[in-house]
């Protein structure tokens, strides 16, 4: 669509993932360009979350190739399987891609600003002062500046998720992944999190978003992907996917979720 989308940030080729006999990802090919916002929709159990977790190596795919910003991640150039890299090398790749979880997963024993400072100080070796300055900046960006010294459990679900987004941003990631970031929230708290995500998209962040929020996908995504049974069934710009889906499975799914 525009020139900043030329460089691929996340590239996936032929990704297969099994849980025992269950073939969860059946050959995923996907490329997310810099600045692109890709929303993945689909029924539960279709492998959407597993795909994100494989990109961050929280799950280990059995076959395929993942590149983050052009670099092959989590395996040797020559090796056929995902095993070769050390703990430290895997961690270094992960640090480049931010992840936001359904259940926030803030660290309950640290204050909000402590949550934001933890990885920049101990992984990126930034000074505490620098990490705090950047952390406060990000908390202001997500509207939580006054909650810096609170503990996570003192915050509402929506505030916790906004803090979790800020925590991921504190690592200055090249891309952000959202794994059903609003699914655990009460309906009245969903909007504030989506607003933060929308703002982030507007700032040009590369985003890969697994979501059930069809309006968000329709309005914010540069591309929508429909997944079912471990495969990408259909993809295209949101107008095309929502207005005139080609595949019968996409039509069925959209009819079900949009009729609610």
């Amino acid at each position: 669509m525009n020139d900043r989308q030329s460089r691929p940030m996340i590239e996936i080729e032929g990704l297969h993932k099994y849980f025992g006999a269950l073939h969860v990802l059946q050959g995923i090919d996907l490329s997310v360009a810099a600045g692109e916002v890709v929303c993945i929709i689909g029924p539960s159990g279709s492998g959407k979350s597993t795909l994100l977790r494989c990109i961050n190596h929280l799950e280990v795919a059995q076959q395929g190739r993942i590149r983050i910003d052009g670099e092959i991640a989590y395996r040797d150039e020559v090796g056929g399987v995902f095993r070769a890299h050390s703990n430290r090398a895997v961690s270094a790749v992960r640090a480049q891609v931010g992840m936001v979880f359904q259940h926030f997963n803030l660290f309950p024993h640290l204050t909000i600003i402590g949550n934001l400072m933890e990885a920049p100080v101990h992984v990126l070796r930034r000074s505490r002062a620098e990490a705090r300055r950047r952390g406060m900046e990000l908390l202001a960006q997500v509207g939580l500046a006054e909650k810096a010294d609170s503990y996570p459990e003192e915050l509402s679900g929506g505030q916790q998720q906004r803090a979790a987004i800020a925590r991921a941003l504190a690592m200055d990631p090249k891309a952000m992944m959202f794994d059903e970031a609003t699914s655990a929230l009460d309906p009245e708290l969903i909007a504030e999190v989506l607003a933060v995500m929308r703002d982030l998209a507007g700032r040009g962040m590369t985003m890969l978003v697994v979501t059930h929020e069809m309006n968000f996908a329709r309005q914010v995504a540069s591309r929508v992907i429909f997944m079912d049974h471990g495969r990408i069934v259909e993809q295209g710009n949101p107008a095309a996917i929502f207005a005139s889906p080609r595949e019968a499975r996409t039509q069925d799914f959209l009819r079900t979720v949009l009729e609610r």
């Binding site: 640090a95 480049q96 992840m99 979880f101 990126l124």
Partner: peptide, 18 residues
């Protein structure tokens, strides 16, 4: 400690030991 805490730490680039 919930698995989500391990996931969140790992996703932030922390090694197992850290």
């Amino acid at each position: 400690i919930p698995a989500g805490q391990h996931d969140a730490a790992a996703a932030l680039g922390m090694t197992r030991g850290l």
